[in-house]
Amino acid sequence: MTDIATYNFAYLDEQTKRMIRRAILKGIAIPGYQVPFASREMPMPYGWGTGGVQVTASIIGPDDVLKVIDQGADDTTNAVSIRAFFKKVAKVAVTTETAKATIIQTRHRIPEQPLTAGQVLVFQVPIPEPLRFLEPRETETRKMHALEEYGLMHVKLYEDIARHGRIATTYAYPVKVEGRYVMDPSPTPKFDNPKMHRSPALQLFGAGREKRIYAVPPFTGVVSLDFEDHPFEVQTFDQPCALCGAENVYLDEVILDDHGGHMFVCSDTDHCEKRRGDPTSSSWGDRAEGAGGADGQSSPSSTPIPALRADPPHNGEGKEAE
């Protein structure tokens, strides 16, 4: 392992981590407020989680256990490579089990298993400004946040109802944090919004390209915006997961063949495997927890259902996913 001696612990230099920790502390002190920070170049392109990786790098310690999910799955490219990255530069233990992780970096999902106090959820955020598509001027949106002028956010929801008869926003659904700042919960499905409300875990959001960090401290109120006569509601699925039979979880549609065959399966792979008591799941997890070695070589043949190992379809319909 002499080759990694050239890296500082967790890749970033100590001054940078200090700067990011300051931004994180400020974010925690002002829930939902977007704190600018001097985002660094990371050894990955923008759009692949540079913000989340910098946040994780700044808070991770040698005793932490890291889990990385991408659209709920532990075994997709983004998740595998970020996990491998931290295993290499911080030599931390990694896991796929939600309960065992102390830090969970996520791209667009919150695990189905409720998080507990002491866990930290790090979101990768593409566009931190919820008002961006309504008001393109950054100077103006900052002023709107400062003066709490959030009427415009409801204009978007109004447009949804006028066009579709209901609030058609299904991801990046705007929330109000602790009765003050309107925040973009990153492009998670709105299904996950209620999980943010008064969560015992600390939730941190990092946007690398946009150079913003924000946070929701534990047990903070997170309320999804809505109208009195069109209240907020989450997606429902009319069938359970095709693999584990779970209900009231977020499902991904998996295409099976070219003849319209498809099935709906849990987007949270760890949750699904746990429920099925899948033996490959635990062995896979153990393998992943071993220090060093190339991770992410999980072979599709190791699981009985090949479709599950395919990349689940992305939820961020048409929007640049990050």
Partner: peptide
């Protein structure tokens, strides 16, 4: 606001002063 509907243009001020009832707006 040229990119939102006429109804939302009229309703924006109402929502800005706190009206949260779609039917009324």
């Amino acid at each position: 606001r040229m990119t939102v509907s006429a109804g939302a243009n009229v309703g924006e001020r109402l929502m800005a002063v706190g009206d949260r009832h779609y039917g009324r707006i």
